[in-house]
Each structure stands twice: as structure tokens, then as C-alpha cells.
């Protein structure tokens, strides 16, 4: 009985209250939050807090192993690469590029995708058919292949990466949001809003948007890891971030050329990718479970 009461109490609460309650309850991915916060701090701090200049060449100290190994020095915590650049500083600098790409790409693809999905679901009919056809068509091209075609056209840069990823992912949001809207628009309060003379814009912003915010937040948080890997792949291929900007994918591409000389240069940037994605995914899972009990089994 206690459980039933508790769940009723939960329904009666607003999502923000549920988040607050869960935040101080159990099941919180503390480690993930800690790691992700460190990445955010490194990204915000930028060049001001890196121990060395991420692009500072020092050929005299090339291929220094991490500090805990023989021959390493505490000066270069995670060792140096073939040009004597400090790997720890470069990983910190890479965090800023990675998060910048992730934030822009998610906001753009999520914004466009959600709007198109809302329009498609709300208006239905021909508009819906056309939009969903376009989504199908775009999904029939593997995303990396599509990215390659776009990359042939635009010269590689931070902006290009953001454009490519946004174009790749909007369909994902559009499909899911459309599905949500299809059921939301049948609700009485939407019909009543229409009868009461609300404009379509008002219905969208005041009655539909608040109801899909949770879904959007969950989708976005689960997308962070995918975007990070996508950016790293593009940069690794040489179609993404270009030097002197630093990206984890680019570091791996460089390190590939001297894979026999410095194992730390090929493992550590990958560990940064892995830990960031892992913590982002776990935070996403936790948000999903907290905000959207229906999707727990997904």
C-alpha cells in the first residue's frame, strides 16, 4: 500500500520536484556527474588552466612517457607526443572543442527536429506525409556517408562539423517528437484551446512544447555520447576539426603515425572520449528513468 501512495504522490508532483527528490535519493550516477563536471571545467577553463600551451612545441622533450612510468616527469602528467606537446593539456583543450560541437549540434538538430516533428504531427495529412518521406529518404543514406558528401562540399572546420552533425541528427528528433505530438494533439485541453480561439503558435508554445520538454531533454542527453564519437570520427578522418584547434579525434589521427613509439598517445585521448561518453550516457539513462518512467525499458 505504501508503494501505491508513494507513486500517487509522485504523479501529483511536478517534474522539477521529482528531479529534486531523485537528486537527493539513491541511484544517482555520482561518478558520471563528477567526470562530466571535470570535462566541463576543462572546457570552460580553456587555455587559462592548462599546465602547458596545448600547441607548444618542444622537440627536446618528445615522446616522454606518463609521469608514473620510468623516464616520465611530473611536469608532463600524461606524457608528450611526437612534437613534445603535453598530452594532458591537449586533452583539456580538446574538451572545449568536443563540448562546443556537442552543444551546438544538439541545440540545432534538436530545435529543428522538434519543430519539424511538431508541425508534422500536428498538421498531419500531406505535410506529414512529405516530411516523413524526407526523413525516410535521409535515413536511407548512412550518416557517415552523408557526412562525407557534405564534407566534400564544405571545407572542414568547426562550423562544418556542427552543420554535418545537425543535418545528420534532426531526423531522429523529428520522428520521435512527431509520435509524441500525434497522441498529445488528441487531448482535450488541446481541443479546448482551439475552441477558445488560441492561435496555432500559442498552442505550440504553451500547450505542446511543455509536454515534450522531458522527451527532448532525455533525447538530447542520450545524444551527447553519439555526437562526441561522430565528431571524433570525422576529425580522425581529417574531415572535421583542423589543427591548430585540438580535438581528441585529431590527436588519435596524429598518434596513429607513431603508434609503435608512444602507446600513451594512442590510448589516453581515447580514454578521454570513452569516459566522457560513458558518463554522458549514464547521466542520460538516469535522466530518462527519472523524467520518463514509460521509457525505462527502451
Amino acid at each position: 500500500m505504501v508503494d501505491v501512495d508513494a507513486s500517487y504522490a509522485e504523479i501529483a508532483r511536478r517534474p522539477s520536484q521529482i528531479v529534486m527528490r531523485r537528486l537527493f535519493g539513491s541511484g544517482i550516477p555520482w561518478w558520471s556527474l563528477l567526470i562530466f563536471s571535470l570535462v566541463v571545467v576543462a572546457a570552460i577553463g580553456g587555455d587559462n588552466i592548462t599546465p602547458h600551451d596545448p600547441n607548444g612545441l618542444d622537440l627536446g622533450s618528445a615522446f616522454k612517457p606518463p609521469s608514473w612510468l620510468e623516464g616520465g616527469s611530473i611536469d608532463y602528467l600524461l606524457g608528450t607526443d611526437n612534437l613534445g606537446r603535453d598530452i594532458f593539456s591537449r586533452i583539456m583543450a580538446g574538451a572545449s572543442v568536443t563540448l562546443t560541437v556537442a552543444i551546438y549540434a544538439i541545440v540545432i538538430s534538436g530545435g529543428i527536429g522538434a519543430l519539424i516533428g511538431m508541425v508534422s504531427g500536428y498538421f498531419g495529412g500531406v505535410v506529414d506525409t512529405i516530411i516523413m518521406r524526407v526523413v525516410d529518404i535521409q535515413m536511407s543514406i548512412p550518416s557517415l556517408a552523408l557526412a562525407l558528401v557534405i564534407a566534400t562540399v564544405l571545407s572542414p572546420s568547426l562550423t562544418t562539423v556542427i552543420v554535418v552533425i545537425s543535418i545528420t541528427y534532426w531526423t531522429w528528433y523529428a520522428r520521435i517528437i512527431r509520435g509524441e505530438i500525434l497522441s498529445l494533439k488528441e487531448r482535450d485541453y488541446v481541443a479546448l484551446a482551439k475552441v477558445a480561439g488560441c492561435s496555432t503558435a500559442t498552442i505550440f508554445v504553451r500547450h505542446l512544447l511543455p509536454n515534450i520538454l522531458n522527451t527532448l531533454l532525455v533525447l538530447a542527453s542520450l545524444q551527447v555520447g553519439q555526437v562526441i564519437i561522430f565528431e571524433a570520427s570525422l576529425s580522425f578522418l581529417g574531415l572535421g576539426i583542423q589543427s591548430p584547434d585540438v580535438s581528441w579525434g585529431l590527436m588519435l589521427a596524429d598518434a596513429r603515425n607513431y603508434i609503435g613509439n608512444a602507446w600513451w598517445a594512442i590510448t589516453l585521448p581515447g580514454v578521454a572520449i570513452m569516459l566522457t561518453c560513458l558518463s554522458a550516457n549514464l547521466i542520460g539513462d538516469w535522466l530518462r528513468d527519472t523524467l520518463d518512467p514509460k521509457r525505462r525499458q527502451l
Partner: peptide, 13 residues
């Protein structure tokens, strides 16, 4: 969880 956090190209490397 690990599998989804490791890019295929890094696994290859």
C-alpha cells in the same frame, strides 16, 4: 555500456 562509449576506430587502433 563500454561498447557504446568506445568509438570503433579507437578500438581498431
Amino acid at each position: 555500456m563500454l561498447g557504446q562509449a568506445m568509438p570503433g576506430f579507437w578500438v581498431g587502433l
